[in-house]
Amino acid sequence: MTVSVVQFGGSNCDRDAVRALEHLGIDAERVWHEDGLPSDTDGIVLPGGFSYGDYLRAGAMAARAPIMEEVRTAAAAGVPVLGVCNGAQIGSESGLTPGAFTTNASARFQCEPVHLRVERDDTPWTAAYAEGDVIEVPIAHGEGRFEIGEDAHDDLVADDRVLFRYCDADGRVTDAANPNGSTDNVAGILGERETVAVLMPHPERATLPDLGGSTDGVGILRAFA
């Protein structure tokens, strides 16, 4: 398995993602978006950052870069695709997943550890956890508020595509535990296939033990193992 971590101008979590994956023994390399996906790609990370300076809307420009056509094709063929933070914004802007990530309700950039409740344990991203587990992973975003029309949200829930919700340390999904005003505390969702996921929190920042914080993000990245 070689994971391609797609680097756009303004990506800044690409190295972190490669480092975290390599720590888990997973081959990973950074791929400049203009170079296209290498033929041996069997996993894709859209990393965090500020691609194209968040011009227009976060993720809007990168979502329309030619490599995203390759990413959509690979995703449709079952290649695992994970969008993290700006990568989640790119994923939703490109139609890999429904909804949109927009300005935090606080109107501020927020960089803090949050708790997430694992809503499913039967996907590649959450096989390491049990449903209802509470994990701690940091967020770092100004535009992470998940918005989706009411009908589309009903469909999302009915289709069981919510992967993580913001919660308190005891797993309670409350307004107080919602850092950015996301609809229904949604922090991460699945695409049409369970092999596609986007989330605002950063699992690659909760993987390396040397960083001294939580390593709860390991289970998410294990999807690529």
């Binding site: 227009l56 949109a100 927009t102 918005e147 989706i148």
Partner: peptide, 9 residues
């Protein structure tokens, strides 16, 4: 439709 607006919001 394709870029300037995001139909979700």
């Amino acid at each position: 439709e394709r870029l300037l607006a995001n139909p979700t919001i």
